[in-house]
Design a protein around this nucleic acid. Structure first.
Lengths: 245, 245
DNA sequence: CCCTATATGCGCGACAGCGAACAGACGCGG
DNA sequence: CCGCGTCTGTTCGCTGTCGCGCATATAGGG
């Protein structure tokens, strides 16, 4: 978490070949993101995509009655705003900053131009990379759907903590139980109870808005299979990321 | 439902400009599909994509313990096998025929070649069309996730019936309650009860594996918002379909 | 350093959906 | 036209989560 900041702390940007990266690099703007900030609202036209470095963004779906649920989470392994290059321009979801940090912003026009570029190689590297990322996102959403249906709040909390942890450089999350409840689409009291169990078991420790993970293997053991499936699929679809780090 | 069969009964194929369509038409094979047939298993390499005409295919996710849930449904508005052109080759889901009928099969190689084609126009029409379809699929999955979390079995059954109905030419579904329960990821008894309510209300009528919808507006009134959101998004993303029909 | 907004803990009753078990009813195939 | 396999209807207790209300603890700004 030093002050020197490089777009390539985002894995997608890091995975781009030198010349592909060089073409978009001049357009990347470093943007700080605060907890709770809304990057885009359901149905609104987006102007930019975001490549998080140390921030985490949740894709939330909000129902008419105000109830909500997280459908996917994006950290430094991904990009916020896939609908810009998929062609739809908008999505019926909301993007909210779940963990403060920074991201690189890129104008939608520049991204699209590069995405559609048909340069020396067949289709550009960015094109293939983003499509594979979109598929990984599809998997994450599918898994969320099934998990919502079949798994207990306890298991889901573990899954959620692990997903967040993977996208952070530290083992402490700044996050209230109320917010977690919003993400998971459950009652706050339910989170309190589940978190209490984990604390008593020595897996996590928390105090007013701060959760520290003490026993990651323990967390993995209590999580449902959904965490592992999603992680495996991300690793499979985006292997460049592993090679580099 | 005459015997003359045209690939263009699939809306994606119908939406392709003449010359784009002409290039892949010779490779399209008409395939009959029986109820319950598995098009591909989770994690297996796919050789073909399928463009249903009067069949309906469910994308199911099956958990380790055998529990399952439908994450999306594909009829003549779509294509089965998006991961082939997204670049992942496989997905961790299973494709099952939910309603018998026919589909046109296309070799993955031919599809990919056309998908990556950079012909006269910018990127090919197929490319844009399929990406927009993929985004619609993303929306459907997201909505399924939220629906699983927040809505009652009764509402979900209505949503599911409507989604199926939209993809059929008739108002009768050949489908047991047991199968519906598998799709929704609930107990069979739950479906029996929910269906009983609908029958008593005169909205549907059923007998051993056959469900007939009598009052579609009634069904829509009882469904959650999820149905309308998904339908609206499909119409927005794939407008060509409406223009043609 | 205190005070207040905010975060967490807990205790109800209510209820939807689960799991298992079984009875009846339909309809296809022989 | 008969029989059996399959589909549907119904029961019971159980668990997990909800919805509400309220008590208590904590941190950080004035």
């Amino acid at each position: 978490m030093d002050d020197f900041h490089d777009p390539r702390q985002n894995h997608l940007l890091a995975a781009l070949p030198g010349d592909d990266y060089a073409r978009i690099a001049p357009y990347l703007e470093l943007i700080p993101m605060e907890l709770g900030e809304v990057l885009y609202e359901s149905g609104t036209q987006m102007r930019h995509v975001y490549f998080p470095t140390d921030a985490i963004v949740s894709l939330l779906y909000v129902l008419e009655d105000g109830a909500s649920a997280e459908i996917a989470v994006v950290g430094n392994e991904g990009i916020v705003g896939v609908s810009l290059f998929m062609g739809g321009e908008t999505t019926p979801s909301r993007a909210v900053v779940q963990s403060a940090g920074r991201a690189y912003r890129l104008s939608g026009q520049v991204l699209k131009k590069e995405f559609d570029r048909v340069g020396g190689r067949r289709s550009g590297a960015l094109h293939n990379l983003l499509l594979r990322y979109a598929q990984a996102l599809l998997t994450q959403m599918a898994q969320t759907a099934v998990c919502n249906r079949h798994h207990s709040l306890d298991q889901q909390l573990c899954r959620w903590l692990l997903l967040s942890l993977d996208r952070l450089q530290v083992n402490e999350l700044v996050m209230t139980q109320e917010l977690i409840a919003n993400m998971l689409g459950v009652r706050r009291e339910g989170v309190t109870e589940a978190a209490g169990k984990l604390q008593r078991a020595g897996v996590i420790e928390y105090r007013r808005g701060h959760i520290t993970v003490r026993d990651r293997p323990g967390l993995e053991a209590r999580a449902c299979e959904c965490y592992a499936v999603v992680k495996r699929e991300f690793d499979r679809l985006l292997p460049e990321v592993e090679e580099i780090l």
